[in-house]
Design a protein around this nucleic acid. Structure first.
Length: 463
RNA sequence: GUCCCCAUCGUCUAGCCUGGCCUAGGACACCAGCCUUUCACGCUGGUAACACGGGUUCAAAUCCCGUUGGGGACGCCA
């Protein structure tokens, strides 16, 4: 049975990188009919917050990453970690270390100054000295000092690390809470995780974890390290480099399926496939097609993909999703034209739902054209033409074909090129220069509102 | 600094494992044209990459080594 997990720490929201790791783990489990587990690694008491946990859960739900078990919380498993640490202590695979924070800082600084890799020097490893009074010790792992650790990473291939590069890491802090490296292996072990899929910033931790697992006499999971996602500037995505919360994309008007598709395609590929849904992802997903190099996040391609999904999404659903955005624009959608029809008209022309709502404001309230638009499209000679068009609008059938032919006819009668009439009409009714076909817009807007706006505008035309 | 990972168009990538089909394919972006009632959409075409240097081989984007460049890790964070 294949079991994967996503194990975020609740010290911030769920961001792009974490979401993609979760997506890959999820897809791998689903592909193989396995199970996907969610575990919250909340052992950093300083920074873990309830809000972060909720934000992560919310992000997972929005993306549709459903889990079969969890969320588990590490803070509920403290006894287990203590037991395991004591076992290692008994078997002389771990030891107490009484070194103070200041002492260790000084040690590292010295090493750095000497051009060495900063690491614990093992001063308490085989120490016979009497422990200082009143100091609560940490428990450190007795890492093997010779030989190599090799594992076969399912993404990167064979990775080898010399044991002498590794130091004796802390297993249990002085307050009895495990550190990441200890907690994670025990949890993955107890939860029968078969495949550990995580960011490749964990590659360096893997040999340490393998050593502990071996000391415990436990079986090893398979590892798959996924490359990082970089910001547009090539820097690792961080809070300062555009790593926004996954839910921010919802607020910006993206569809979860668009984001999922984009994320899946970032660092993973199935030939030349660009647009594929969740089921196709599951069917196609494999670890070997994950790219080995880090990828830069490209917001423009995300926008394009989102537009592809917007186009094929049912207008009814889009209309519902758009309501909060209309609210932001102070548009009462219960009043004006049929929202469904508005969505139909606009959904191929915008990249996000936010843009859709923004592009539809004039359906709900008249917009004042900018002075440059007025100067460009309004002129006194036009006034009689627009007046006669308006008169005809009072009598024709109100559908876009009829409106359209009336506009064309009027332009012909006055020997005008069509745009010369259509543009001023568009600007005077919508206040904007870019809208869908003006006839379609007018039909939706309704005869009454159209005439009202024309009257109003014409009353002080061309100003 | 030390260790680990990585390296194909500006970006995401196919091809690499199992050398020849690659005068390197697709997508985003960009440019031009078409469509057109504006803006989009759509369609057509275009610019654009195997980091560099050595090997191995009849033949290398593909295999090996080095250089350079990028990323990551080096905590009683995860």
């Amino acid at each position: 049975m294949i079991r994967t997990r996503f194990a975020p720490s609740p010290t911030g929201y769920l961001h792009i990188g974490g979401a993609r790791t979760a997506l890959f783990s999820w897809a791998y489990a689903r592909k193989h009919g396995g199970q996907f587990v969610l575990r919250i690694e909340d052992t950093d008491r300083e920074r873990s917050t309830k809000q972060s946990t909720e934000a992560i859960l919310e992000g997972m739900e929005w993306l549709g990453l459903d889990y079969d078990e969890g969320p588990y919380y590490q803070m509920e498993r403290l006894d287990r970690y203590r037991e395991a640490a004591e076992q290692l202590l008994r078997e002389n695979r771990a030891y107490y270390c009484y070194a103070s924070k200041e002492e260790l800082d000084a040690m590292r600084e010295q090493q750095r100054a000497a051009g060495l890799k900063p690491r614990y020097d093992g001063r308490w490893r085989d120490s016979k000295q009497t422990p200082p009074a009143g100091v609560k010790p940490v428990i450190r792992f007795k890492n093997p000092q010779e030989g190599y650790v090799t594992f076969n990473d399912l993404v990167k291939g064979k990775i080898t690390m010399a044991n002498h590069e590794l130091d004796d890491l802390v297993l249990l802090r002085s307050d009895g809470i495990p550190t990441y490296n200890f907690g994670v292996i025990l949890d993955d072990l107890d939860m029968n995780i078969s495949h550990v899929i995580r960011g490749d910033d964990h590659i360096n931790n893997t040999p340490r974890q393998i050593n502990i697992l071996k000391a415990l006499g436990a079986p090893l999971p398979q590892y798959a390290h996924v490359p990082m996602i970089l910001g547009a500037d090539g820097e690792r995505l961080s809070k300062r480099h555009g790593a926004v919360s996954i839910t921010q994309y919802r607020e910006d008007g993206y569809l979860p399926e668009g984001l999922v598709n984009y994320l899946a395609r970032l660092g993973w590929s199935h030939g030349d496939e660009e647009i594929f849904d969740r089921d196709q992802l599951i069917a196609w997903f494999d670890l070997t097609s994950i790219n080995h190099a880090p990828a830069k996040f490209d917001p423009q391609k995300l926008r394009w993909l989102n537009q592809q999904y917007l186009k094929k999404t049912d207008s009814k659903r889009l209309a519902e999703l758009a309501i909060p955005f209309f609210d932001r624009d102070n548009c009462d959608t219960s009043q004006g034209p049929d929202l469904l029809k508005i969505v139909n008209l606009l959904k191929e022309r915008v990249d996000t739902i936010e843009e859709l709502a923004d592009a539809a404001v004039y359906f709900f309230r008249p917009l004042e054209p900018s002075s440059s638009l007025k100067a460009q499209h309004f002129s006194l000679e036009l006034k009689p033409v627009l007046n006669s068009l308006k008169d005809k609008f009072t009598v024709i059938d109100w559908n876009h074909q009829a409106i359209n032919s009336e506009i064309k006819k009027t332009a012909g009668e006055h020997e005008m090129k069509l745009p010369k009439l259509a543009m001023p009409l568009r600007v005077m009714v919508t206040g904007e220069a870019q809208t869908p076909s003006i006839a379609a817009v007018l039909e939706l807007l309704g005869r009454e509102e159209t005439l009202k706006r024309m009257d109003h505008r014409l009353s002080f035309f061309p100003d």
